[in-house]
């Protein structure tokens, strides 16, 4: 009996490992190994022809902490994330609630909202260049009708980051709306009817029933939005290149600059490690704390 059970257990174990192995191989190759390699290289100095790289421990990190540009970039990115994430989620939810209700031309509204998502970020940035360009841009054209002075939205430190933020929100809200729309469609119609009979107003129904039931989606979207707030920098290349005077520089752009413009790979690696650490903490909070408070069907 027990010999059979043992054999069965071993077979199950082998089966399990076989099922795991493709994912394990791919993750190791493309995620774990690069992360560890990055961590390793961040501990070495930048090698030149005269001075080969040597182990320096945390020196690259202390250098970064002493670099005012690094702190400016961190501040920019925090502001960027702090505005784009809640605003795009809020807009996505509002649009989804609207596009899910019984309105005419519902199909058109949905398609219209989704269009920015289909565009590549580079194309979207080029599009927005037409809005922002001083003199020729649509914003200035409209402004001039009302006699407003020309504004160089992308060219001055006070407005450059905000211009970038708006492009990101415009781009992301439609994408997130699709998830909300899908989630809204899984909420049975009779919950609304039951709430109606109980005398719940539209607002009460939305707040007490719909929003809690959308929480898993919101969580998923929030994770995506946070990742995007670090990852999505394509439009910087077209619109501002991080300028003027680093006013719109985000952390990933700075990492790219370090690695491929200043050829300082160890500093770039150190920054990458810090980004990974921060994202890791955020993910842990989301999955261990928020997940427990979320209702999954």
């Amino acid at each position: 009996m027990s010999a059979h059970a043992n054999l069965e257990r071993r077979r199950q174990a082998i089966y399990g490992w076989l099922l795991l192995s493709p994912a394990a191989v791919l993750l190791t190759l493309f995620a774990f190994y690069p992360s560890i390699a990055t961590l390793w290289s961040s501990l070495f100095s930048r090698g030149t022809r005269r001075r080969p790289s040597e182990f320096v421990g945390g020196e690259n990190y202390t250098d970064l902490f002493a670099d005012p540009t690094f702190w400016l970039v961190v501040k920019n990115n925090l502001l960027y994330a702090g505005v784009t994430i809640p605003v795009s989620i809020f807009i996505a939810l509002s649009m989804a609630l609207w596009a899910n209700s019984k309105i005419s031309a519902r199909g058109f509204v949905r398609t219209a909202y989704f269009t920015p998502t289909v565009l590549p970020m580079i194309a979207a940035a080029n599009l927005w260049l037409f809005f922002y360009t001083p003199g020729l841009g649509v914003l200035d054209q409209i402004g001039s009708v009302f006699g407003l002075p020309s504004v160089n939205w992308l060219g001055q430190p006070e407005t450059a980051l905000w211009a970038i933020i708006i492009v990101t929100i415009w781009k992301e809200a439609g994408f997130f709306m699709i998830f909300y729309l899908a989630a809204l469609q899984t909420i049975p119609e009779d919950l609304k009817e039951a709430a109606d009979i109980e005398g719940a107003s539209r607002w009460t129904y939305t707040r007490r029933i719909v929003l809690p039931l959308l929480m898993p989606t919101t969580l998923f979207i929030a994770v995506n939005a946070i990742i995007n707030s670090v990852k999505l920098i394509d439009h910087l290349f077209i619109l501002t290149k991080g300028g003027p005077s680093d006013a719109s520089k985000l952390i990933l752009y700075y990492i790219w600059e370090m690695a491929f413009a200043f050829f300082d790979a160890p500093s770039a690696a150190a920054m990458t490690i810090m980004v990974i650490a921060v994202l890791g903490v955020v993910a842990a909070v989301q999955f261990f704390y928020l997940d427990r408070r979320t209702h999954y069907q």
């Binding site: 009779d190 919950l191 009817e193 039951a194 029933i209 039931l213 929480m215």
Partner: peptide, 20 residues
């Protein structure tokens, strides 16, 4: 009248309980 003004209650086939 709206459903809420009719002073009645209803049991649905699917029960329509709020899952959360």
């Amino acid at each position: 009248s709206a459903a809420s003004d009719r002073n009645l209650s209803m049991v649905f086939q699917s029960y329509a309980l709020f899952p959360h």
